[in-house]
């Protein structure tokens, strides 16, 4: 791949004595949506944590935009242009929507036009503007997810790592969230997404990546992954080797 935005090379990492990532390697193209799929325990979320500096690597290297980011702190990664939206609800429920947004930029304290950026973001999400000054806990699940994405966008990221954005959302809200991601791609933002809703995610993605037992099993155009007969087998619980 020519000049990838993100490159993982032989990542070995895990929790305690348990190794989850067994030499994970892959590259992410610029300006595209790449969906990571794989069975439970494949190491999908773990690989995101490793990229975002929340998990110490035992071996391997990570390059972002041509420079090594191995061992960088989340703060440094945010400043370099990476934003991470983990699974579940990741807001400060007792703060107002506006305060939550302001907090999104804590790591990049030198953003001079933050108030303008917040206003612009609220224009993009009218439902959140209505609730800008109420406690974030009063937002619906979908709005909370939108708030998280919006918070990340304030930093003008080059890469968004988003883990299971559709979890707990109604089909309509999933569509809405995916539409936001497509809009970001149109603006040149690269998106690396984990999604259980594999078919729907791959249909809107450019690339697909299949992880199993902490290793890359398949990587290529999303359309090819979607039509690969081995994928159904994998998601039914069989191993790739047996299916191949």
């Amino acid at each position: 791949m020519d000049n990838p935005l993100l490159k993982l090379d032989g990542i070995i990492a895990g929790y305690g004595s348990m190794t989850i990532l067994n030499g994970t390697s892959f590259e992410v193209r610029r300006g595209v949506i790449t969906t990571v799929i794989g069975p439970n325990g494949a190491g999908k979320s773990t690989v995101f944590k490793a990229i975002f500096g929340l998990l110490k690597l035992r071996a391997g290297s990570i390059h972002f935009d041509g420079q090594s980011i191995t061992g960088w702190s989340p703060r440094r990664l945010i400043e370099a242009g990476i934003v991470y939206v983990p699974q579940g609800r990741n807001i400060f429920p007792e703060m107002s929507v506006r305060h939550n947004l302001e907090f999104g930029a804590v790591a990049a304290a030198n953003i001079a036009d933050l108030p303008q950026r917040i206003e612009a973001a609220l224009d993009r999400f009218p439902a959140l503007r209505e609730k800008a000054d109420v406690q974030a806990s009063t937002l619906s699940g979908g709005q909370q997810k939108q708030l998280e994405i919006m918070r990340g966008l304030l930093l003008d990221p080059k890469l968004i790592l988003i883990d299971e954005p559709s979890i707990g959302l109604s089909p309509l809200l999933v569509q809405e969230t995916f539409a936001i991601l497509k809009e970001l791609r149109a603006k040149g933002v690269t998106i690396l997404m984990i999604e259980q809703n594999a078919r729907m995610a791959l249909e809107m993605s450019d690339d697909g990546l299949v992880l199993e037992l902490g290793q890359t099993r398949l990587h290529g155009p999303a359309h090819d992954i979607l039509n690969d007969p081995r994928i159904a087998q994998l998601f039914l619980g069989g191993a790739m080797g047996a299916a191949a």
């Binding site: 703060r75 990664l77 983990p86 990741n90 429920p93 790591a107």
Partner: peptide, 16 residues
């Protein structure tokens, strides 16, 4: 305050 409310979220926002 962010750390007190939710250290995990604080961490992903780059708060030390």
């Amino acid at each position: 305050q962010a750390c007190a409310q939710n250290p995990d979220v604080a961490r992903i926002l780059g708060i030390p």
